[in-house]
Design a protein around this nucleic acid. Structure first.
Lengths: 331, 331
DNA sequence: GTGAAAGCGCTAACAG
DNA sequence: CTGTTAGCGCTTTCAC
């Protein structure tokens, strides 16, 4: 920067101001600086800037898996919402493990992010302590935590699953099964299972058709295997709800392989409104939790929090939408 | 850090050494420092460390889309391979646009990454200049660039597509169509199309059945629309190759909706070996380009380059695997 | 094994 | 609108 200052015939401070582009530099100086920078192949050093100004321009984000279209959409919503303010996303994934999340949070905080977005509302005590200490805006997303750390953009996974069960019952289904993952790890999946059981009880129906397909994420293949298990052990099942569209699609393919009519003999519903749900044959009934929106709303909260426009911890409730499609038509 | 030094009764330098954990600190001092840090809720500041040591511990990575299972797998391979050395990934996506890539590269370089991984071998002149100037290891992935910037981990998309065509021809297919995206943007897709045309010519077959499904990424729905178009305009088509499994699956669903037998009347093949290809009914013939492997090999190259073990620019050839499945059985 | 001094490249704060 | 001074929180370097 000193070199540029020399070449442009100004002080380093003017160079700094020129790069901030806040219009506080004369046009002549601005042009001279930019030309000198171009000639010297100068690349601004954000590290030094971050250290001195105590503004890293980072927003740290943790998601359970990078290989998931729902979370990817959320990250896009976040990224697009933050880019205008020059904020960059520092992304990490937890593999659906709160211990891994703790390690990740500790690692990310070392970079001095200006805000932190974490997926889900279940964290280790140490994670909570780290986030508290960090004294930066924290947004929990994709859930409605019992004990929020800071701000929240989410919805009740249990309630959303309940609307799905209500729909199936309204369609005349009674012997409804749930295919989901290992309760210990996937907290959102567990919430959905709890919502399933609660809704079934509300309707006075049997809640024992619960298939545990293993640790999250539940793949299409695991959904298919679970469906095969279900068809073998509980062949009178007339509807299946899956923890996600991906496992639901797997279940659907298993029915296709076995010649089981969907929705004639078994209705199938998923969760997440993944691309596949709309296009497979028959298309899948599902819940759209508006993943992109979760991200863009979180971005708005962050911008407000950084502006100081947000005095109270805020909770933005996303209203998931039930999408009824052919996979769950009347019995 | 000064506070910790005081509390632990040592100098700041010893605190620094304790955090580096290189075993050059006495056990007593190490323990005292860790205890003091814990008590004070100290979080190490990577920004200051990066500035002084000129080591950011960042590896910057650009991918076309964050919402793509293939690239997500590559990022996981990279991430897992780099984590052991304490290197963190700084991820950005380009939306399949070389101009956006240029902006992104400029932005990422400001963070002083120690290496840069870029997807594809087509870049703007300015991107190339920026990467040259940066004087850090550069790895291009998912392609075999004509004019590599630095190291490469990739394969020939054209050649891989050729093997797919060869397979279809061997199965007795002759009137083969290609469904792909806008040539201007998706360079890998364009390479695949070129490979398709070259292989068809090699077999002396008609190369005019090319459907342009719009700008990448080509969605399942766009694959379905393209298939509908094809069935309407060129109903004697006996095989379809798609630029990815996702569009291929869309095409398959369109056949299901129209009662077109796959592979009886039309064979379908995709590219990428996405999860869906293995499980849909019928499963899709495809190419596995080993996305995870691309990432882990790139990570290895980076570690070698940073160690100085790599004097020459290296190219690691990935050998994509043809997976023949029921969607392309004999006519 | 430990400490003192200096400085990484930028910008806050103040002055003009 | 521009410049000067000082310092962000670490680590390099050198000394002991």
């Amino acid at each position: 920067m000193i070199d540029i200052a020399r070449l442009a015939g100004v002080s380093p401070m003017t160079v700094s101001r020129a790069f901030k582009a806040d219009g506080t530099v004369s046009e002549a100086a601005q042009a001279a600086v930019m030309k000198a920078a171009e000639d010297l192949g100068y690349v601004f050093d954000s590290t030094a800037s971050a250290l001195r100004s105590q503004r890293s321009d980072f927003v740290a984000v943790t998601i359970p898996s990078i290989n998931n279209a729902n979370f990817a959409d959320t990250v896009r919503g976040l990224s697009d919402g933050l880019r205008a303010r020059g904020l960059q996303i520092l992304l990490g994934y937890t593999d659906y493990d709160v211990q891994a999340e703790e390690t990740l949070i500790a690692q990310l905080l070392r970079r001095r992010p200006e805000a932190m977005v974490v997926t889900g509302g279940t964290h280790t005590d140490r994670s909570r302590a780290l986030l508290d200490k960090a004294a930066i805006p924290v947004i929990e997303i994709w859930d409605l935590p019992d004990r929020p750390i800071g701000h929240v953009v989410g919805f009740s996974n249990a309630a959303a699953m309940g609307t799905l069960v209500d729909h199936l019952v309204a369609q005349g289904r009674r012997r409804i099964a749930f295919i989901g993952g290992d309760a210990a790890r996937d907290t959102r999946g567990t919430d959905r299972r709890r919502g399933f059981v609660a809704a079934m009880q509300r309707h006075g129906l049997d809640t024992t058709r619960l298939i545990d397909a293993g640790p999250p994420p539940i793949s299409m293949a695991e959904g298919a295997a679970a469906m095969a298990d279900l068809l073998a052990r509980l062949p009178d099942t007339d509807a299946v709800v899956c923890v996600s569209d991906l496992s639901a699609f797997g279940a659907l393919t298993e029915c296709q392989r076995q010649g089981v009519d969907v929705p004639g003999r078994v209705a199938i519903a998923g969760f997440g409104d993944y691309e596949i749900a709309a296009i497979c044959v028959p298309p899948l009934t599902t819940i759209n939790p508006f993943p992109r929106r979760i991200g863009s709303d979180a971005a708005s909260l962050i911008l407000q929090a950084l502006d100081g426009t947000l005095s109270q911890p805020a909770t933005i409730h996303i209203a998931p939408e039930l999408l009824t499609r052919a996979s769950s038509s009347g019995a």
